[in-house]
Nucleic acid binder design. Structure first.
Lengths: 242, 242
DNA sequence: GAGTGGTCTAGACCACTGC
DNA sequence: CAGTGGTCTAGACCACTCG
């Protein structure tokens, strides 16, 4: 169990990778429990403390969720606590309203330069584009244009989107087995164009937020790129800095 | 060492609070090392592992910085790695340019309703207001208006600001003993008014980011409120979601 | 009560830093 | 070389959940 190589990697990190493999391979699916610490310890021939440290790190990265007395579970976006993990939008008056997703369009296309650069696909590879509206207490607040890898989300259609309840990421988990781990957002201020102005109910030229998001699944593989146009008339983009 | 109260608090968290007290009281100042784990363990009559767990949490919260072989240090904003911790601004082309802070004005005032609400001071209490410009590679990108508690930052003046090299938060640490721990930001899109347009070199009405930040020191005490007006012509607000 | 994660300990050894 | 943090172990006991 000793590692004398120049690129030293502690045992618990090797264990972490083994557990990660289980997640990637689908051995344990989102929401399901993984084996207990003692069970994993005997399986991997290490002490419980080492497994514990591996799980600690993964829980800190929101990959696993520990629940004392019950077990350790694969994190899922359908957990209500995870809903605002990727949606940093709050009402100016502090009220918390549930959001409703209204799918507008969904069509297939071939990857252009932008998709190639961000999604790591080849030029002309199939991609899927979704346009949808996000409403808070009945009012439209966000217009999203979402680019997805066609190979990963094969079968996605407007009908599927309309049938589904809940956030897009729960749909991606349950129907396509894709779990979003991490995302990067780039925010800029832009004037409302004609289409966005109409959809969001603001005057053309009104300053809006352009929020570009790249979303990664296991292995830091980018699978979604989206641009959201946020109206900040009654909401704002909220961020906590630590 | 047993705790049978209904509000159970593990030992390592009590140790954490003791170390926190040392930070708040200034027993160890930013950049300085705290005593070694074994030393703290004997001082607090617990095992090294318990001290370790306390320090682990504080390192995760960016309160302490561990350096193998050297010791554990009080985190500081003058560490270059911490520079972009609170400034989520990157160039669109990905280049990393150092920023220069240009103080414009600094005056004393009495707290209005906004300051009362955010900074938890009394109406009419002394506050200090700073206006400054942030330049990247010579170009103005951010105009900041900064509201500070007068009791905490007594003695701050335009001269002091102009003399100082480095970020504002390093000045706050070295001259006023105030360390910023955590911040909240609220981002909205607004049109450039006349003054901002002139300072940032954009046309009046250009969409800009309004970034309001509340900054907290130990004990979650708010000591700074600022509104930054960001030009997103060549930069964007970057955020990583985990 | 059995099983889970959570805490605490004591001790051994490894990796890194600086004298 | 001594001193620091980093890893790993084995074992005891506590707190929580559920049947």
């Amino acid at each position: 169990m000793v590692n004398e190589s120049p690129t030293f990697s502690p045992l618990y990190r090797q264990i972490k990778n083994l557990i990660l493999q289980g997640l990637e391979s689908g051995e344990w699916r989102p929401g399901e429990p993984i084996p207990s610490e003692t069970e994993l310890a005997t399986r991997f021939n290490v002490s419980q403390g080492t497994v514990r440290k591996a799980i600690d790190e993964m829980a800190a990265e929101n990959l696993l969720l520990r629940r004392q007395g019950k077990g350790t579970f694969v994190a899922t976006h359908s957990d209500p606590r995870a809903f605002f993990r990727f949606l940093r939008l709050v009402a100016l008056d502090g009220s918390v309203e549930p959001s409703v997703s209204v799918p507008l369009e969904c069509w297939r296309a071939k990857a252009g330069q932008e998709a190639v650069r961000v999604l790591h696909v080849q030029l002309g590879d199939p991609i899927i584009i979704v346009r949808r509206l996000l409403q808070f207490s009945g009012k439209p607040v966000v217009v999203d244009e979402i680019y997805l890898r066609g190979d990963v989300f094969e079968g996605l259609s407007l009908e599927v989107l309309k049938e589904h309840q809940g956030s897009l990421y729960t749909l991606f988990e349950s129907k396509f087995g894709v779990r979003m781990i991490r995302a990067e957002e780039r925010v800029r201020a832009i004037p409302a164009d004609h289409a966005s102005a109409e959809l969001l109910g603001v005057a053309e030229g009104t300053p809006l937020l352009s929020v570009e998001r790249v979303c990664f699944t296991y292995g830091d593989k980018p699978v979604e790129w989206r641009r959201g146009i946020y109206s900040t008339v009654e909401h704002c983009y909220f961020n906590e800095l630590n």
